[in-house]
Write a protein that binds this DNA or RNA. Structure first.
Length: 218
DNA sequence: AACTCGGGGCA
DNA sequence: TGCCCAGAGTT
């Protein structure tokens, strides 16, 4: 398992590789971010941004989403994966915001996770990005990178990965660390055929050493 | 823990 | 055209 110092080294190197790592979803307020993140499940941020660019001109508030027929909302987000269920969830979610939270987005993890279409990852992104609350959103990139590097164990659940990261990374850095790991995972430490030979983290990466064994010249 | 849901992007 | 990518919810 990597030490805190080794993890810091990793995060610093990721910062050099991706100095502009940040949340890529378009949003101007917590409500729009919540919608954007719910739409982003199992979908790339680029696809979501294509949809929200026009969506947010038409729908400004929770009321706007529930006064239209479900079919209309579904058509408006048709180009992303799982759009039928996502439209249903957004209407249910908007009703809950109006009925229970005076139309505002709640801030607690528990309240967010009770909303339909909002799981742990989505709730943590909203807390971190919209409200500036320290949170570690573990998506597939963060999970893969953590496991390959050796920050956590291969068999760890998503929750265990999150707990380990929160324990080993200073709280003030959770937000930037999670964005760096996402960029690192998406563009460099890819799921398929990662370029370990050209990775600045190879010297301490558990998986990288295994993968490059016998491949290195000399 | 395994399965389902359903698009876009890329080879 | 077929393979890979990205989470939540249900059993």
């Amino acid at each position: 398992m990597l030490t805190k110092k080794e993890i810091r080294f990793c995060l610093d190197e990721m910062g050099k590789m991706f100095p502009n790592a940040h949340c890529e979803l378009i949003h101007r307020n917590p409500f729009e971010l919540l919608i954007a993140v719910v739409l982003s499940a199992q979908t790339t941020d680029a696809s979501v941004n294509k949809v929200t660019k026009t969506l947010f001109q038409k729908y400004k508030s929770p009321q706007d989403y529930i006064v239209v027929p479900l079919e209309e909302l579904q058509q408006d987000i048709r180009s992303i994966g799982l759009y039928r269920t996502k439209a249903k969830n957004i209407q249910k979610l908007c009703k809950i915001l109006l009925e229970q939270y005076n139309g505002q987005v709640p801030k607690s993890l528990e309240q967010l996770m009770e909303l339909p279409g909002v799981g742990r990852k989505t709730a943590n992104v909203v807390r971190s990005v919209a409200f500036g609350i320290p949170a570690f959103a573990v998506d597939t990139h963060v999970e893969r990178v953590s496991k390959r590097l050796g920050i956590c164990r291969w068999k760890d659940s998503v929750l265990e990965v999150e707990m380990t990261l929160m324990k080993k990374v200073p709280k003030e850095e959770w937000s930037i660390a999670h964005h760096r790991m996402i960029f690192f995972g998406r563009y460099h430490c890819k799921a398929q055929n990662p370029d370990c030979l050209n990775c600045p983290l190879l010297s301490i990466c558990r998986e990288g050493k295994k993968r490059t064994k016998g491949l290195k010249e000399n």
